[in-house]
Computed example of a mutant assay.
Amino acid sequence: MGALLVSVGLQFYAQATLLTGGVAGAALLLHYATGHGFDALFVLINLPFYVLAVRRMGWKPAIRTFIAVALVSWLMRMEPDWMGFAHLSPVFAAVAGGGAMGVGLLILFRHRTGLGGVNLVALYIQERIGWRAGYVQLGIDATIMAAALLFLPPGKVALSLAGTAIMNLVLAINHRPGRYLAISL
């Protein structure tokens, strides 16, 4: 369900020509720039990060992450055959897509599963160099968004930023230590 919600959110973004951060954002940007399929780009960009995933998280979470990436990629390829958009407001796509991706990531994170290498790189740099992971990830995402200005109108980039903020707010509000612990009364 997590992969499905992320892929639906990404499908909204792809149909509205919007962008998100991380590896998915890089894959969307390369898709817009080259015309190559998002599905293949998403898998290819993630390949180098699996070694880091095994080292940081262990085999089981790394395998779950690999499966989630493959599933999102496959769903992104199949969904245009399953659903279509006669009209999709870019504002709605930013809000609904960002929310869907946030909830999907929340489900995946809850089960120690991720969707890409940017988080792993940020944590690795924090451990090795001491730079805070949040700032590293913000820098990478800002670079992706800045590069988007070469291929997308500024209004689309602004909507992309708003949608990405919504996605991150869903995660920030709902993904906290202790949030999923049962309490006996």
Rank of each mutant, 00 (worst) to 15 (best):
L28A: 04
M1E: 08
V6D: 06
Q137A: 14
L28C: 03
P61S: 14
G35K: 13
L106N: 05
G35E: 09
F85K: 12
V6G: 03
G35V: 12
G130L: 10
R64F: 14
L161K: 03
W74N: 05
R179Q: 15
M1P: 04
A142W: 04
L171P: 11
V6H: 10
W131H: 10
V103P: 04
G37F: 08
A53V: 00
P80W: 02
V69C: 01
V91N: 02
V95T: 11
G102V: 06
G37A: 15
I45V: 14
R110S: 09
L75Y: 11
G84N: 06
L88F: 09
A122E: 00
M57D: 09
M83S: 10
R176Q: 14
R56W: 04
S160G: 14
P61E: 12
W74V: 15
M76V: 08
G22K: 15
T34V: 12
L106D: 01
M57C: 09
G37M: 09
A94F: 06
P154G: 07
P61V: 10
Q15G: 05
G22W: 11
A147H: 08
F66S: 10
R176W: 04
T17S: 13
A68C: 13
G58T: 11
L29G: 05
F66G: 12
S184C: 08
I63V: 14
V51A: 15
L4E: 02
A53N: 00
D81P: 00
D141P: 08
H111L: 06
A182W: 12
H111D: 03
L44E: 07
F109H: 08
K60R: 15
A27R: 09
V136F: 10
V121K: 01
M78C: 08
E79R: 03
L10D: 01
A93H: 07
R55H: 13
A100P: 00
A68D: 03
I67S: 02
